[in-house]
Amino acid sequence: MNAIDIIQILLNLLRLTLHILYHICQSVYYTFFELNEKSVNGEIVLITGAGHGIGKELAIQYACLGAKVVCLDINKQTSEQTAKEIKKIGIDAHAYQCDVAKREDVFAIAKRVKEEVGDVTILVNNAGIMPCHAFSDYTVDEIIQMFNINVLAHFWATYLPSMIKRNYGHIVALSSIAGVVGFPNLVPYSATKHAVQGMMDALEDELHVSNKGKSLIKFTTIYPYMVDTGLCKKPKINKMLGTFLQLSTPKDTAAQIIKAQRQNIRARSVPSFWLPLIKLVRILPENAHVVIKDFIDTGVEPS
């Protein structure tokens, strides 16, 4: 290695350091002064699991912001009911029955949506199931179905070809706090939500590399704690910390998801303090993690 090579390495390290410092300053700035929220007026937003809970609230709130909403749900009646409620406020919406666990169904609906509505520009992969049992009590069918809906459905419903062609779009996926840390009675569910996180991170990196840093397709992964949608049938909440650990409402959760998407935030927990707290705890020794988990003492009981 000659002197020129050494100088080149030092210059590259200096450039890297300056980039890192810039992004640190930017992050600190946006901690105190929030990012602007981009308009979704006229965007075509497709939401899976739009028949109830978070999905329904997402559909209604996106519609109120001027987006064209496409509601997908395995239950035809609830999907149509969501669209009907949106139409009552004078905004058009489209409803389709779709089992996101079935690749053929997803592709067939994608073709219909393109023909009848247009190219999806914002995709929200919201559909999911969460049976709560001790690990040994799960059936093979339950585990397979969880992976089909919670993970594989994200692969089938990407709507990436049209986004890549236009170099424009936004994909939002719902992971979970259980996709960052494990919870008792949620072992398969936690595994599926870890998988969602991995897929979103890798997919964003792949488009960044393949487009040489010029990809304009955005990714947002959401990590809810517990939401009052009926999936958490027996929440376990530490009474001492109950004020901070209450279940979020679907309406508030949807609002925070939309805000994160409109601000192009890559990862956001609901409530927002969870992800920073988890990152802070992970600096500590592993045995400290156990002590902190025991102190928080939250999760779900088997149902």
Rank of each mutant, 00 (worst) to 15 (best):
I164V: 12
K111T: 11
P184N: 10
L65C: 06
G42T: 09
V181P: 11
I177C: 13
Y159D: 06
P161G: 02
I177Y: 02
P250S: 03
K38P: 01
N2T: 12
L35F: 14
L10P: 08
S162M: 13
K76W: 14
N150P: 00
I7T: 15
S272Y: 04
E57T: 01
I144A: 00
I9Y: 15
M200C: 07
I20L: 13
L65I: 07
A195F: 02
I4T: 15
T17G: 15
A127L: 07
Y225K: 05
I171R: 05
L21C: 05
V209M: 08
A157G: 02
V124A: 01
S176H: 01
H94L: 11
I258C: 06
E115L: 08
K279G: 14
I7P: 13
I47A: 04
S248C: 07
D105L: 03
G53H: 10
I283C: 12
F107Y: 12
W274Y: 11
S175L: 03
K193P: 03
S27H: 00
L174N: 03
A83V: 10
I283E: 04
I91N: 11
K236R: 10
L203G: 07
K38L: 00
G213S: 08
V270F: 12
H194I: 13
V227Q: 03
S176M: 04
L123T: 08
G198K: 04
D92P: 05
V180N: 10
D73Q: 02
I283H: 06
A59Y: 08
A195W: 07
E116R: 06
A127D: 05
D252R: 12
R268S: 13
G49R: 06
G49L: 08
D137L: 08
S162Y: 08
I143C: 01
P188A: 04
R262V: 05
L21P: 01
H94I: 03
H23C: 13
Q61N: 02
R266N: 07
G230I: 06
A83K: 05
R262I: 03
N148Y: 10
V69L: 07
Y96H: 07
I278D: 03
H52F: 14
S272F: 10
H94S: 11
G51P: 06
K279H: 11
A108E: 05
E301K: 09
A3M: 15
A59R: 06
I109N: 01
A127H: 08
S210M: 10
G198I: 04
S210T: 13
G55W: 08
Q261M: 14
A195D: 11
A134R: 15
I109T: 09
F219V: 06
R282H: 12
P131T: 11
R266E: 02
M240L: 15
L245R: 11
P250T: 02
K102S: 08
I164M: 15
F155V: 11
Q263L: 03
I9M: 14
V117D: 02
G230H: 05
P276V: 03
V172P: 04
K76C: 08
V124L: 07
N185Y: 15
C232A: 15
E37S: 09
N125P: 01
V113G: 02
L123W: 00
F295D: 00
L13I: 14
D105E: 11
A195M: 06
L186M: 09
S162K: 13
I278P: 03
T243D: 05
L277C: 15
Q26N: 01
T17C: 14
